[in-house]
Design a protein around this nucleic acid. Structure first.
Length: 363
DNA sequence: CATTCGTGGAG
DNA sequence: TCTCCAAGAAT
């Protein structure tokens, strides 16, 4: 009895301290200026395994393009992927789209309000369900993301190194998070825990001197992590094929087109996205090197060689897997390009306009 | 349940 | 330059 009261007294103090810290330290993020469930949902999907800074740059424009759940549901998948282009984990965009259509069909576009119901939608797992329910609807559902797991493990002095795919520990963390959550401010509490993990209780160099709950922490130090498999290296080549259609020759170079290829839908990696045609290995004569790009995807570090290929050599020098299309450069930016393709096109500076911008900004 | 899915930025 | 990894979910 006494021990239990002691625990609850400590818990109350912990809640008070963390929430008091959160109020003045919370970052002013766009998705913290709304409680609209749809907007919260979009932010939570984007934030999955994606840094706040990256989401900051893409969140508003996604909501401008798809302002409502219904508008998202009505869009073509390619439009959604195009808006998602560069964010990675493209399955998120597909499942977001599917879930929107599902909700429109089943419940007239009203997103469920409880974690249990949200959890049934594609792309919404335990974390996202609890996040939406607590932040948008004030439900008392504790989130456990990477931040919360780390904070809880340090607080309790648990060895978090096995935290990945280790069920017993994961359950203990979830149970502890459920005990800690402040039932009077669930959304703020969840965000405060994540904010603490993201800005103070950092993975490698935690700033324990700035931590509002260091007094309750059993660790105040490093967080063990498992070593990772070393990155693999691979070299690949892509073809940059540019042409100016006859009909557009008089109007100048602004109408130049590039050849893009759509990745087949059956691929596991980035199906349906558009990229530069793949260069045939040991192509002879070897096309001129335009640029080399480093691009890491998952555990493979690619050295990518981009070579200029003339239109009449495309068949001979490239391998084709999916549909090809000539696209005006200005239109390409609005397509579902892979991140690598986007990077290459930016760096290639094909259009006169892009050159002008670069010339001005570099002076 | 271990694996797989992208990307860009900090250190 | 290179490693590490970030508000996870599906399979």
């Amino acid at each position: 009895m006494a021990g239990r009261n002691e625990d609850s007294r400590k818990t109350l103090a912990l809640r008070r301290r963390l929430l008091a810290w959160y109020a003045p330290h919370r970052r002013d993020l766009p998705w913290r200026r709304t409680r609209e469930p749809y907007a919260i949902w979009i932010s939570e999907i984007m934030l999955q395994q994606t840094r706040v800074a990256v989401v900051m740059a893409r969140y508003r424009e996604f909501l401008e393009r798809f302002p409502t759940l219904t508008s998202l549901a009505r869009a073509d998948e390619q439009e959604v992927l195009a808006q998602w282009s560069g964010l990675g984990y493209y399955r998120r965009a597909r499942m977001l789209h599917q879930a929107a259509q599902f909700v429109v069909q089943r419940d007239n576009g009203n997103l469920p309000a409880t974690a249990e119901e949200l959890r049934r939608l594609p792309g919404i797992g335990a974390y996202t369900a609890a996040a939406i329910a607590s932040i948008a609807h004030g439900k008392c559902s504790a989130v456990v993301d990477g931040n919360v797991a780390r904070v809880v493990c340090r607080l309790e002095g648990w060895d978090g190194a096995g935290g990945r795919a280790n069920d017993p520990l994961k359950r203990r963390i979830e149970a502890r998070a459920a005990q800690l959550i402040d039932p009077t401010h669930p959304g703020d509490w969840n965000q405060a825990m994540m904010e603490l993990g993201a800005t103070v209780c950092l993975p490698r160099n935690p700033r324990c001197l700035e931590c509002p709950i260091a007094g309750a922490c059993k660790t105040r130090g490093e967080h063990k992590t498992l070593p990772r498999a070393p990155m693999l290296r691979r070299e690949i080549g892509h073809a940059l094929v540019v042409r100016i259609p006859n009909r557009a020759r008089k109007s100048g170079a602004g109408a130049q087109e590039i050849l893009l290829e759509q990745r087949p839908p059956e691929l596991t990696v980035m199906p349906g996205l558009w990229e530069l045609p793949e260069l045939r290995q040991a192509a002879i004569p070897e096309p001129e090197l335009r640029m080399t790009v480093r691009h890491a995807i998952m555990r493979v570090n690619y050295l990518v060689r981009i070579r200029d290929v003339a239109e009449h050599n495309v068949e001979k020098l490239t391998v084709q897997q999916g549909e090809r299309r000539w696209v005006r450069l200005e239109d390409a930016w609005r397509m579902a390009l892979t991140g690598l393709t986007r990077k290459v096109l930016e760096r290639a500076r094909l259009s006169p306009a892009a050159k002008d911008v670069a010339a001005h900004s570099s002076q």
